[in-house]
Structure formats: structure tokens, C-alpha cells
């Protein structure tokens, strides 16, 4: 069982931002399942307390640290609290982010505030977290960074400027992390989740149940867990600067049943 043994994360300390709900919570619980103690960081205390309770119910320790990742001082305080409690950071999962600021507007209507808030949340927040955590990883002799991008980091979107820009920025930020720290045993990779409605019926309806996704369905939160554990574990020891997209096939051709050119004649003699 050598391959599966590499997935064990017993005793590892994982910091998860945006851990209070949705994919952040699902991934935090998967990391706990694999053996991690979890630092649950997010703005809203009751939500991360709930996540921490779920982690403790699995028999692992959890530290609740209300954190605003757009504020470098708040991020530094979160990392300091982590070190004070656990002494190390093995895994940093930069999950916090948000697509909505300025979304759905043509560029000329996007405000300064929307742009700044979005870039701060999606891009600068990850920079602050990495900057604060990496010295500890170097001191320990290594670590794992998992950043969360999106299909919009690889492709454009109509009336979608801040999010596509920030998520694309994260991809190249992560590649530079890989280039810089690969020889000191830090691996930095990206997850690109597709459409995950988190059991929210409004989201399911908004995304029409995933009818336009090649696989014909939306993602399930629990499907992100194994992927996150994979990137946090020794199984991915030679992945660095790379993207794992879990999205039902949309990126391979476009969100249409036959790829980006849905109306071409489908069968033709050569």
C-alpha cells in the first residue's frame, strides 16, 4: 500500500483561509481526515468556529483565528498565532477569495473600490499569507502551498475583469514560488475548481444544474477533498507550479457539449 501511505498527513499543521464555508470548509475537513490539525482562518468567527468543531469531532486540534486576508497585519497576527499554538506550518491552503466584486458589469462601470477589494481579496491576500508563512516553512525544511485559482484564471469572461485578472495573477505568482523555493523543498501548486454550488439551490439554478458543463453536472464539495489532500501530501512531491483543474471537462473544449465549436457538422467523411 505504499502509494496510499504517502497520503497520510498525521501531525501536519494546515492553515486554511476562507475555512468557514463552502470549498474551504470541505477542504479543511478533508485535510483533517487525512490527519492534519487545522488553523481555520476567515473573517466570520461563528463560521470558522463551526468548522473547528467539525475538525475536533474528527479527533484533531483546531485553532480559530478571525482573519482579514486583505490586511497584512491581520495575516501576520494569524501566522504568529499559529506558530505560538502549533510551532509550525506544513500546509498553507490559500482558499479565501471572491468573484463578485464588479462581476457582471462592463469595464466602464467597474468602480475603483470593486477593483481594489477584488484584487486585494483574491491576489494580495495570498501574497500576504505566503510572505508570512514561507519563513517558517524554510526554517522547518519545507512545506506545501496550495493556491486556489479558477478556469477564469486561464480563460476570459464577459463582464468579468477583476476576477479573471486576479486568478490569472495567482497562477503566475505560484509559478514564481515554484521557481524560487523548489530547491528548498517547498512545493506550490494550484487547484482550479469548476462550478461548485455548495448545496445552495440558488446557485444550482443559476448554473442550470451544470447542463452546459461537458460532464453535465456541477461539482460536489466532497470531490475537492481528495485533490487537496493529494497536493498537501508526499504523493505530489514532484508537482510544482502546476494546476489541477477539477471541473468536469469545460477547460478542454469550452462549456458546450462538443467543445468551442458546437455547430460544426459532427460527422463527415474524409
Amino acid at each position: 500500500m505504499a502509494v496510499l501511505d504517502k497520503l497520510k498527513l498525521d501531525g501536519k499543521i494546515a492553515v486554511v483561509t476562507g475555512a468557514g464555508r463552502g470549498l474551504g470548509r470541505a477542504m479543511a475537513l478533508a485535510l483533517a481526515d487525512a490527519g492534519c490539525d487545522i488553523v481555520a482562518a476567515a473573517r466570520t468567527r461563528p463560521q470558522i468556529e463551526e468548522t473547528a468543531e467539525l475538525v475536533r469531532a474528527k479527533g484533531h486540534r483546531s485553532l480559530v483565528v478571525p482573519t482579514d486576508i486583505t490586511d497584512p497585519a491581520s495575516v501576520q497576527a494569524m501566522v504568529d498565532a499559529t506558530i505560538a499554538e502549533f510551532g509550525r506550518i506544513d500546509i498553507l491552503l490559500n482558499n479565501a477569495g471572491g468573484a463578485t466584486a464588479g462581476m457582471g458589469k462592463p469595464l466602464e462601470e467597474v468602480t475603483d473600490e470593486e477593483w481594489r477589494l477584488g484584487i486585494d481579496t483574491n491576489l494580495s491576500g495570498t501574497f500576504y499569507c505566503c510572505r508570512a508563512a514561507i519563513p517558517h516553512m524554510l526554517r522547518q525544511g519545507g512545506g506545501k502551498i496550495i493556491n486556489v485559482t479558477s478556469g477564469f484564471g486561464l480563460r476570459g469572461g464577459r463582464d468579468n475583469f477583476m476576477y479573471t485578472t486576479a486568478k490569472a495573477g495567482l497562477i503566475n505568482f505560484t509559478r514564481s514560488l515554484a521557481m524560487t523555493y523548489a530547491d528548498r523543498n517547498i512545493q506550490a501548486n494550484l487547484i482550479a475548481p469548476g462550478l461548485f454550488p455548495h448545496d445552495n439551490p440558488a446557485m444550482v439554478e443559476w448554473w442550470r444544474g451544470g447542463k452546459f458543463v461537458p460532464m453535465g453536472r456541477l461539482g460536489r464539495d466532497e470531490e475537492l477533498g481528495p485533490l487537496c489532500v493529494l497536493l498537501a501530501s508526499d504523493l505530489s512531491s514532484y508537482m510544482n507550479g502546476d494546476i489541477l483543474a477539477l471541473e468536469g471537462g469545460g477547460l478542454s473544449g469550452g462549456h458546450a457539449p462538443t467543445g468551442f465549436a458546437p455547430l460544426l457538422p459532427l460527422k463527415r467523411e474524409v
Binding site: 515554484a178 523548489a182 461537458p214 481528495p226 485533490l227 504523493l235 508537482m239 468536469g248 471537462g249
Partner: peptide
Amino acid sequence: YLASDAAAYLTGQVVWIEGGALS
């Protein structure tokens, strides 16, 4: 991993395992 049930929603991807060479 790709062969397992855990990767049921993952398709059409090239998963690079190249130690950052493409970065």
C-alpha cells in the same frame, strides 16, 4: 489518483508533474 473514484469529476486535463520545469 486519476485512476480512482476520487477523480470522477476530473477530465480533459493535462496534469503536469515536472518539478516546476514549465514555470
